[in-house]
Design a protein around this nucleic acid. Sequence first.
DNA 1: AGTTGCGTACCAACTGGTTGGTATTTCGTC
DNA 2: GACGAAATACCAACCAGTTGGTACGCAACT
Lengths: 204, 204
Amino acid sequence: MNTDATPTRTRLLNAALGIVREQGYEATTVDELCAAAGVSKGAFFHHFASKEALAVAAAEHWNAVTSALFANAPYHLLDDPLDQLVAYIDFRAALLDGRSIPEATCYLGTMVQETYGSHPVIREACFAGIAGHARTIEEIIRAAKARHAPQASWSAEGLALHTQAVLQGAFVLAKAKNDLNLARESILHLRRYIELLFHYAKED
Amino acid sequence: MNTDATPTRTRLLNAALGIVREQGYEATTVDELCAAAGVSKGAFFHHFASKEALAVAAAEHWNAVTSALFANAPYHLLDDPLDQLVAYIDFRAALLDGRSIPEATCYLGTMVQETYGSHPVIREACFAGIAGHARTIEEIIRAAKARHAPQASWSAEGLALHTQAVLQGAFVLAKAKNDLNLARESILHLRRYIELLFHYAKED
DNA sequence: AGTTGCGTACCAACTGGTTGGTATTTCGTC
DNA sequence: GACGAAATACCAACCAGTTGGTACGCAACT
């Protein structure tokens, strides 16, 4: 086994991202994770003190993977921060294309609903990840607000968190209907909200 | 035991609504449910064929409880459907007051994330509940649209589902931060979106 | 160069406790 | 005494985590 070049630890983290998004945290067994990573149980507990510790490490891994994805996304190239914001939302919608539901949805949002009470460590890792990503959007919103709506009563921080809430909610509905199109439509509503907030002229 | 007047079956259903919203479906054990309901395990399996069957029955129970709550809510008394819609959103925000996170959040949305792949029966029950409630909002939106924005490009159905997505997402974020105020803020953004869509004049 | 010592990575088998579910018995009421 | 509701006792399967051990690289010492 382990003919793959990626180190065992990373293989387990990636397996966690996949299986937990499919089944949730509690329903995912350590044996399943080991099997998916092609690794023995001894190796698992060599790298991670507990299943909970893996979940936390996987959250950090998720943050690393997704921040790289967003850092290289095209919306940063636009000049106007408002254009960037709208392009970010379109980018989030585009991320659904050609993906299955577990592939398209968020590892953090999936886990936090079932762990927020019983596993505070996981909950905090989830919030840190979501809030961290929101902060990058907050900066874009802050710049857009300064240029286009300096008098607006809403805060950049609140709107940034709201964008994440809409995305998470879109994932919940998509899973309930087993259909990602539901998520697409909610993201479109989010886009329209931003446009209305900024009196943004649609070009399409 | 069982000095309570409510029948065993209902006690188990109510216990499920509480504990599952706290811990999620998989982390909730049958023994826990029995203990919370003050009922033996034999009684549990006398009333429900399986844990999964209880979850589905509890979803229907949740629908019954919440539809009664919304049916009696004050927003129905308003004349203008747009006023009703805005009042509905305010009502949803008011439902957070004085409640803990498990009390304030949605049984269906909590469960569906971890069961949508492995328990299709539960997933369908969750979607049926959410979609059913959305349909009542859809009617209000349809009337409001006919009166105030007949030309609008969005559909009543889509917007109704979006309102539910925002609420579900607000719950996810609130759980992640362990703070219901996050949900309040997102619901406020949803209110503003509706106002902007309808060019609704704020009176407050 | 050989080998000794040691830390890291990994493995297969096992354990103690828990879980959903069952078999059987008892209770309550018509 | 019949019949459904509820209690007790129990089981096989499963789970997170442990154990005791192997393989291997690397450095130090001879």
